[in-house]
Computed example of a mutant assay.
Amino acid sequence: MTVAVTAPLPVLRERLVSVPNTVTVLRTVLALALGIGAVAVDSLALLGVAYVCYWAGDSLDGYLARKLDQETKVGAVFDCVCDRASTCILAVGLIAHAPEVWPPVAVFLANFMVLDMMLSLSFLCWPHVVSPNYFYLIDERVFRLNWSHPAKAANTAGVVLMVVLGLTWPVFLWVALVAALAIFGVKIWSTVRVARLLALG
């Protein structure tokens, strides 16, 4: 279902060098360096700092892109790729520190690295959509389930935080697994819906 425009679209001026893209580079390099260091010395605390750098930086680059009117398709793709690079290293760090957490982390990674990546890049099929943050212009339900603030928090932080709690209270590992499977189901449904929208032209 196509949704009427409810907010002005940003003026699209493609550029690779910009303030938000610079922040994306810095937060990714920092998260990767800290994440690799955490794996090398088996430090959960350092891994936690790496996650904070990734999540805070991911929020900051998006905020600056909107605030400075520097939203671009290339920036959205770059952000998406850097999110996966950071997430992959940090997830490996979690499994290296506590191998018993692998089931929910494996489901989370399969979802985030494949299905969510494909969904996040599907905006490129619609020329007037600058990033996944504007997917409500195409389909509001898909947007709410995938790129609204609650959906983003659940998709990137929710499972990870439950896994960390599971290091102390093992029951949370089961909660994390159920949550990861539920999110996986949402992504499958969203992928099918987007495929139908594309088929309709």
Score class of each variant (00 low, 15 high):
residue 1 M to C: 00
residue 8 P to V: 03
residue 12 L to Y: 01
residue 14 E to Y: 07
residue 14 E to S: 10
residue 16 L to A: 03
residue 17 V to F: 15
residue 20 P to R: 03
residue 24 T to K: 02
residue 25 V to C: 06
residue 25 V to R: 04
residue 26 L to V: 10
residue 31 A to P: 06
residue 31 A to I: 05
residue 32 L to T: 05
residue 39 V to M: 15
residue 41 V to Y: 08
residue 42 D to K: 00
residue 44 L to V: 13
residue 44 L to I: 07
residue 46 L to C: 02
residue 49 V to P: 07
residue 52 V to D: 08
residue 53 C to R: 00
residue 54 Y to G: 13
residue 58 D to P: 10
residue 60 L to M: 13
residue 62 G to K: 07
residue 65 A to R: 05
residue 67 K to H: 12
residue 69 D to A: 14
residue 75 G to W: 03
residue 75 G to F: 04
residue 79 D to K: 12
residue 83 D to K: 15
residue 90 L to M: 12
residue 92 V to W: 02
residue 93 G to Y: 04
residue 94 L to F: 06
residue 99 P to G: 08
residue 103 P to I: 01
residue 103 P to M: 03
residue 103 P to A: 00
residue 106 A to I: 08
residue 110 A to K: 04
residue 120 S to E: 06
residue 122 S to T: 12
residue 125 C to G: 02
residue 126 W to P: 05
residue 127 P to Y: 11
residue 128 H to A: 08
residue 132 P to Y: 12
residue 138 I to N: 03
residue 142 V to R: 01
residue 144 R to G: 14
residue 148 S to C: 08
residue 148 S to V: 05
residue 148 S to W: 01
residue 149 H to A: 13
residue 151 A to E: 02
residue 154 A to V: 04
residue 157 A to K: 13
residue 162 M to I: 06
residue 163 V to P: 12
residue 165 L to E: 10
residue 167 L to W: 09
residue 168 T to D: 06
residue 169 W to I: 12
residue 171 V to Q: 15
residue 172 F to D: 12
residue 177 L to Q: 05
residue 179 A to C: 08
residue 190 S to Y: 15
residue 194 V to M: 05
residue 195 A to D: 09
residue 196 R to G: 08
residue 200 L to S: 12
